[in-house]
Every structure is written in structure tokens, then in C-alpha cells.
């Protein structure tokens, strides 16, 4: 019964979408607002990457909301699985079996990943990329050692400080503009944060700073999420292992 209703519902929705799609202008978007933004953003925002201009300037509040969702998820996961898990983990008896090559490979990879991550963040307003993409790469750089070395742990204290402060910096930059009697999250408000020349690194007002805060926050958030889940799984397996030993 459940299967039938599931099939009917999903099939029905797919059929509905197909029917509607024949009426919709796929392939020839209307771009009512889109083309206006493309024309206006070089003058209004001054960032070469139009998507970055939309994310941080035109729809900056969306990005703030999305940051908060990640933060909420991380806080929720921390509360559910328990932050203290990492402190109570006894040193593993399992031998480190990830091998010499991956050990050395990590040591080489981490600086490279950090450079690439920060490059993508800093050039987010000029080239494809930005805070989210760079932040994910940073998260991988932090999390790789946990994958390879079984005794490596991420420090949850530092992560929670970074995620809190980076989020606060994003908001404070927005509020800084209000201090100059500008609207919240307006990217230009004093001489330091000017429009600059299109295509230069220090252009588009506060956008690079916002992207930096965003990247650090996303990186810390994702690394924290992964580490909390990994810690929980490790404590679970170790707990049951030690139970087995006593039996």
C-alpha cells in the first residue's frame, strides 16, 4: 500500500513537472531581474563575479541566513551527539594502519589545500569560487589528519571560537555600514572600502572581507560537523570494543 502510494505520488509529481515544463521557458530564461543585475552590478558593486555580487550584496541577507543554518545544524549536532565526546576518548589500541604513503601525502597536501582554499576565498569576487567553495577546501585540510591518523583529533574549542567569531565579523561588517548611516550590509561606506577597479583584488568594498569571514566560518563549521560525527562513531565502536574485551 505504502509502496503503491509512494510510486503514485512520485510519478504524479514527475508527470506534473513534465507538463508544466513544456509551458516554461527552459533554455530561454526571461531574466527580468537577472539582466538588470548583470548590467548594474559592475557599477553598483564593482565585483567581476556577478554571482558573488548577488550573494553578498544584492541578496546578502540570504547568505547570512544560510550561514546561520549551517551554524544551527552544527550546534544541533553538537547538542545531540555531545561535544565532550572527544575529551573522553581513550587513546586507541588500534594500530595506525593508514600507511606511510598517506601519512606523508597528508603532510604535503595540507599546505597546498590551505593555499588553494584561501586563494579561492580571496579571489571569490573576481573568479569562480568564493567563501563556500574555499571554505569546504579549508574544512578538508583540517579534517584530513583525522581520517589518516587515528589518534588525531580536532580541537572543538578552537573550532567553536572560529565559527562564532567569523559569523559575528560578518554581521559586524554589516552593522559597521549602519554606523555610517548606510543600510545594513552596504559594501561601501568609507574611503577604505571603495568600489575600486573592476577585476582588481582590492575592489568591491567589503566583499573580500565578507568572503573571508564566510570562508572561515564554513570551513570551521564543516570540519567541526565532520569531527563531531567521527568522534561519536569512534567512541561508539571503542565503547563496544572494550565491552567485548571484558566479556
Amino acid at each position: 500500500m505504502r509502496n503503491v502510494s509512494g510510486l503514485l505520488f512520485s510519478g504524479g509529481l514527475a508527470f506534473l513537472l513534465l507538463v508544466i515544463a513544456t509551458h516554461l521557458p527552459f533554455g530561454q530564461p526571461l531574466m527580468l531581474v537577472g539582466s538588470d543585475i548583470i548590467q548594474a552590478s559592475p557599477h553598483e558593486v564593482g565585483s567581476a563575479n556577478v554571482v558573488a555580487a548577488i550573494l553578498l550584496a544584492y541578496r546578502g541577507i540570504d547568505t547570512l541566513g544560510e550561514l546561520s543554518i549551517l551554524f544551527t545544524a552544527a550546534a544541533g549536532v553538537g547538542l545531540i551527539l555531545g561535544h565532550r565526546a572527544s575529551q573522553n576518548v581513550p587513546p586507541t589500541q588500534v594500530k595506525n594502519n593508514s600507511g606511510f604513503i598517506s601519512q606523508k601525502g597528508i603532510e604535503l597536501m595540507i599546505p597546498l589545500l590551505l593555499v588553494v582554499g584561501f586563494y579561492i576565498i580571496f579571489y571569490g569576487h573576481l573568479t569562480p569560487g568564493g567563501g563556500f567553495q574555499g571554505g569546504v577546501i579549508l574544512a578538508i585540510a583540517f579534517f584530513l589528519p583525522v581520517l589518516v591518523q587515528s589518534d588525531a583529533r580536532l580541537d572543538h574549542n578552537i573550532i567553536s571560537i572560529i565559527e562564532g567569531l567569523a559569523g559575528a565579523v560578518f554581521i559586524l561588517i554589516g552593522l559597521w555600514a549602519m554606523f555610517y548611516e548606510r543600510p545594513f550590509l552596504q559594501p561601501f561606506f568609507n574611503g577604505l572600502f571603495a568600489k575600486g577597479t573592476l577585476g582588481e583584488l582590492w575592489s568591491a568594498g567589503t566583499l573580500p572581507l565578507l568572503y573571508l569571514a564566510l570562508g572561515l566560518k564554513v570551513g570551521a563549521e564543516l570540519a567541526g560537523l565532520l569531527a563531531t560525527i567521527a568522534d561519536f562513531s569512534i567512541t561508539e565502536t571503542q565503547g563496544s570494543l572494550s565491552e567485548d574485551d571484558t566479556q
Binding site: 531581474v33 553598483e44 544584492y58 546578502g60 541577507i61 548606510r182 552596504q186
Partner: peptide, 13 residues
């Protein structure tokens, strides 16, 4: 109504 970031509607939020 007011626009966030000063970007007037319909471009901004």
C-alpha cells in the same frame, strides 16, 4: 519598506 544593503527592489531584497 526598506531595501537591505540599499539595493533597490526588484534587484535587492
Amino acid at each position: 519598506s526598506f531595501a537591505i544593503g540599499g539595493y533597490q527592489p526588484p534587484l535587492g531584497v
